[in-house]
C-alpha cells in the first residue's frame, strides 16, 4: 500500500533537505520511493511543497487531493492552504510559525489571527513550535529536522537508522544538533 507524505512551507524553510533525508531513509529501508518538487519561480518566497510517496511499488510521483496520509506544514497558512490534500483519516502536523507574504507586508491582505482555529474545525491537528524547539537546541534553522522527526514518529518509521542517514547527509558540525532535533520532533508528537 503506497503511503503519501506532503511537506509544505515557504521557500527557504528547509523542506527540500527534510524530504531528501526522509526519502534516503525510506530507500535504504527497502521501500520503492518517489518524490516530487517544483523548482524555479516558486522559490522566491513563494509557497513550496515536497511530495513523498513510498510503498512496495509506487506509481504516481504526485499526491492528489484527499490522498495525503500526513501533511507536515512548516508554516500555519501553508497548512490551511494544503488542507484539501489530507485524507479524511490523515494526520496534520503544523509548525506554529507565521510568515507574512508580500501581500501582507504591503498591506493588501491581513494575515488572519484564527488560522489554527479554522484548521481545528476540520481536523485534530498537532501544533508544534518547531522553531522554538530548534532554537532551544541551539539553532532555529534545525526546525526542519524537528518536523522531520514528527513525520517519522507519526508514520511509524522509527526502526530506520536515522542517525546514520543524518551523518551521511549533513555537514559534520551540524550532525549532533540535528540528531537532537530529530528526537525532539519525535517526542513532540509522541
Amino acid at each position: 500500500m503506497t503511503k503519501s507524505i506532503l511537506l509544505v512551507g515557504v521557500g527557504g524553510q528547509g523542506t527540500i533537505l527534510a524530504s531528501k533525508i526522509l526519502t534516503t531513509g525510506l530507500m535504504e529501508a527497502g521501500y520503492d520511493v518517489k518524490m516530487s518538487e517544483i523548482h524555479g519561480m516558486s522559490q522566491r518566497g513563494g509557497s513550496v511543497s515536497s511530495q513523498v510517496r513510498y510503498g512496495d511499488q509506487v506509481d504516481s510521483p504526485v499526491i492528489e487531493k484527499g490522498a495525503a496520509d500526513i501533511i507536515v506544514a512548516f508554516e500555519q497558512m501553508e497548512a490551511l492552504r494544503s488542507l484539501d490534500y489530507l485524507k479524511e483519516s490523515g494526520t496534520l502536523v503544523v509548525n506554529t510559525e507565521k510568515i507574512d507574504s508580500m501581500s501582507v507586508i504591503v498591506g493588501d491582505q491581513k494575515y488572519p489571527d484564527d488560522v489554527l482555529e479554522e484548521i481545528g474545525r476540520h481536523v485534530e491537528e498537532k501544533a508544534v513550535d518547531a522553531t522554538k524547539i530548534a532554537a532551544e537546541l541551539g539553532n532555529p534553522k534545525a526546525a526542519n529536522v524537528v518536523l522531520l522527526g514528527t513525520i517519522i514518529k507519526a508514520m511509524g518509521l522509527d526502526q530506520i537508522d536515522w542517525d546514520q542517514i543524518l551523518e551521511d547527509n549533513i555537514k559534520p558540525k551540524f550532525v549532533e544538533l540535528n540528531k537532537k532535533a530529530l528526537r525532539a520532533g519525535m517526542e513532540a508528537v509522541a
Binding site: 513563494g46 484527499g66 490551511l80 507574504s101 508580500m102 484548521i119
Partner: peptide, 19 residues
Amino acid sequence: SLPTIEFDRSKLINRAPAL
C-alpha cells in the same frame, strides 16, 4: 474523486514569489 476536507478559503492569503 477522493473525498476532501472543505474549509473557509477566505482565510487564505496569497503567497506569490517576490524579489
